[in-house]
Design a protein around this nucleic acid. Structure first.
Length: 315
DNA sequence: GATAGTGAAGGACAGACCTT
DNA sequence: AAGGTCTGTCCTTCACTATC
């Protein structure tokens, strides 16, 4: 597949094998690469991509499936991916019922996308066994092409499952590896932000707060470079939490501003308490509505709340 | 003739494995 | 730990053939 793409791009650039290979590899070897007989090294791919004025990712981009005549399925995959994104799972059930994963000759990337839809559906349904099965299949099939948004989504789901199983270190491994690949071969996009978000969550579980904080800074930089916003509120909470955990209470207070939002309030109160402003902390804490169960979507913030109420309860 | 494909032979290198 | 050997992969060169 890579060879096919190289040939396509070379032809678009009106270059012969001789011209493209010159000074990089032998012409014969390029021929073998294009035929798919050999697997070129990354080094070679990088050099070829430079001469062809493209990225290595372009070599791995999906070859258009004009031979794959089932456009209907492709259209449906895209349609139901959106439905899954919107958590419209009841509609997705129609897609599941069609059992597209049983169809032979579906190209690997598309088959991977089908499995990913299945995995996300079964995750919603709470069927962990099928979720894991389809996630692994999706990863396996999507890994045959360049790191793209579908592969990243599969990685995110996989890391989520690993973290839920208490295998945070394995989750970090797969996320870091994917960050490396996207950074090395791809151009920055929303996937880079999503991956780092997932990493922040894992590093907080691992109590590696400095790394988590550094990642929140990375996310802000990438967002600003791409001129997009992504879960700004949650990012701010993570940033505050890491600052609090690092003992940078003044910075945390500054970041929280005068937000009346519950999580921010908890972290403000906690920081104030740490800075010996017990009275202010107590007042702030009393203004926070008493939660009946989980107070925050971020467990560590609930932890701060419990600690704080424990300490200030006697006042 | 220019370009591309194939096969054989072999060098360079890295990783795995074993011995000292 | 340091070394030697083996093995597999990447890559080259050369010679030849096929296609346009």
């Amino acid at each position: 597949m890579i060879g096919q793409r190289i040939k396509e791009i070379r032809n678009n650039n009106n270059l012969t094998q001789e011209e493209l290979a010159d000074g990089i590899i032998s012409r014969t070897y390029l021929s073998l690469i294009e035929k798919g007989t050999v697997q070129p090294s990354t080094n070679v791919l990088v050099k070829l991509s430079k001469r062809l004025n493209c990225t290595v990712n372009d070599f791995m981009a999906e070859v258009s499936h004009f031979k794959y005549n089932n456009f209907e399925i492709l259209r449906e995959i895209g349609h139901y991916e959106l439905k899954v994104d919107n958590e419209d799972y009841e509609i997705v059930k129609h897609f599941i019922d069609k059992e597209y994963e049983q169809i032979e000759d579906v190209p690997l990337p598309d088959s991977g996308r089908i499995h990913l839809i299945y995995a996300r559906y079964f995750k919603f349904k709470g069927d962990l066994k099928r979720t894991k099965l389809h996630t692994d299949k999706a990863l396996q099939k999507l890994s045959t092409i360049a790191v793209n948004q579908h592969y990243v989504n599969a990685v995110l789901l996989k890391s989520e499952l690993l973290a839920e199983d208490g295998e945070t270190d394995a989750a970090i491994d797969i996320l870091e590896e994917t960050v490396y690949l996207t950074t090395k071969f791809g151009e920055l996009n929303i996937s880079d932000i999503k991956l780092r978000f997932a990493l922040v969550k894992c590093y907080i579980i691992f109590k590696q707060y400095y790394t988590a904080y550094r990642l929140t800074t990375d996310i802000k930089q990438i967002s600003s470079r791409l001129n997009i916003t992504y879960k700004e509120e949650k990012l701010k909470k993570y940033e505050m939490l890491t600052l609090v955990k690092l003992g940078k209470y003044k910075d945390a207070l500054e970041l929280a501003g005068d937000s009346s939002e519950t999580d921010a309030g908890i972290m403000r109160a906690y920081s104030l308490w740490q800075l010996d402003k017990v009275k202010e902390a107590d007042q702030l804490l009393k203004a926070i509505p008493a939660p009946d169960k989980e107070i925050s979507s971020i467990p560590q913030i609930s932890g701060l709340y419990k600690e704080l109420t424990g300490r200030l309860g006697g006042l």
